[in-house]
Amino acid sequence: MVFGRIGEVWKYREMLWSMILSELRTRYRGSVLGFLWTFINPLLTLLVYTFIFSKIMKVTMPHYSLFMFIGLLAWNLFATGVQASASVIVRQGSLVKKIYFPREILPLSVVGGSVINYLFSLVILVPFLLISGYQPTIYWLFVPLILLLETIFTVGLSLMLSSLTVYLRDIEHMLGIFLMLWFYLTPVVYSTTMLSPNIAQLFKLNPMSDVVLSFQSALYYNESPHWKLFVYGLVISIVVLIFGWWLFGLLNRRFAEEV
């Protein structure tokens, strides 16, 4: 069933692309700086964290703001993607009721927008790496692979949540708190070396930990990601994707009546 759905989505790739574009373009429409905000946002975030952690809190970890920024960008992709897609079918109810298209397009376009936003933020991250004294290494080539892993996981979860939210609107509100908890269970602001080894092992069951740790390996520690961790994350992500898509296929039949 899932493969049939993928074929259908492929037929509507033009629409997917157009939805992603309008999503990106509407986000900052009407503001004076417009599209520049896509870059200003991560830049300001970076400046705030650098200021707090190296001037006020004096964290001993070298290049701590860089460490945190790498994890934060990866986390933001995931969190904004999941949060925005949870409500996307209800928000786009007028389309769902009036026009046929594979409904997967809606959560996919939201996640697609998040991925593209991540790519734009690399425009800030890469110069910052260079300024901090990092040289481009072969390990940077892992970044697209890790990004793919994260996208698969995010899409899977988004498909699941977006279809469930149509029937159970609470999810949208619970999700904010749930994501905050998840954020602190993911080694974004701290390193797993600060945890006791047992707990660190436990934390690695969380696929988002695998994603963030892999990004940190490739960009911060200049090493190849731990392949066991990566493969584990990939397997979990694919399982989540297939289950999410299956659930979506099941629930999507009554969307037009329920939104």
Binding site: E14, M15, S18, G30, F101
Partner: peptide, 16 residues
Amino acid sequence: DFSGRENIFMNGALLG
């Protein structure tokens, strides 16, 4: 928020 021309492209994509 988009112009008529831009909407032609977006609406056309919706219609396949």
